[in-house]
Amino acid sequence: MPITSENSPDGPVIRFENVHKRFGSLVVLNGLDLDVPADRTTVVIGPSGTGKSVLLKHIVGLLRPDSGKVYFHGQRIDNLPEKEFEPIRKRFGFLFQQSALFDSMDVGENIAFPLRQEGGFTELQITETIHEKLSIVGLAGSERKMPGDLSGGQRKRVALARAMSMNPEVLLYDEPTTGLDPIRSDVINELILKLQKQFKVTGIVVTHDMASAFKVADHIVMLLHGKIVYRGTADEIRNCPDPEVQRFIQGRASVAELDALDRL
């Protein structure tokens, strides 16, 4: 493949071009354009229901756009058949909002799953990987625990260990701190930072937790009504003059929303 601006080493890892997605009459993505740079953490913020998780699911082919294009390292991936998507997916790790640990397997087997799926690893290598990944997330010695016996924060950390087990190039985090207390949230934030710094993982974090966004982001993009309405660094977005952006990052309800409450 010839080197172009899209697949050059300095080009974006992931690119969305005019992506549209609707579910029935509900328009979720409405001409979304986004470039995700390599080795950085990009945080996607926006109110609930604006399509942040839908955006992530387009990257790994769990959802396909109605129109528009999605690229990974310059290769168009939105139109790949399921079978051809599999090698692409192996280059991603995905931390699901609800952790999505397999209930029927213990922690060790959950982390080993992607390795066994890939094949070619000895039992010793698998055991070492489980131990290594659990140590990174601070849960060494939890191999034999069942997911049902873990707290919400521990489940997220195990899910992160599983997402890392194949040493992915890109990690996608869907609401990594939702439902966790501030201290557990901070543990997850520190882990995201550690992975980015230590392993140079490209990260995309979808969240509406602004404390988390400001802590882990190299770039922040704001998604509203199916489009990116703002992009910049954490400092830039703090000083952004757009009232809609300021209202969101400061967590202020609009006048119309307050009026609706008064009418109750």
């Binding site: 699911k57 790994v60 769990l62 192996k90 699901f96 999505a100 640990l101 397999f102 799953f113 799926q117």
Partner: peptide
Amino acid sequence: GTMRVTEQIDALRVMAA
């Protein structure tokens, strides 16, 4: 159904299973 609702089926697909 529970696996679908709790995204475990999506997780399988993401892990190329």
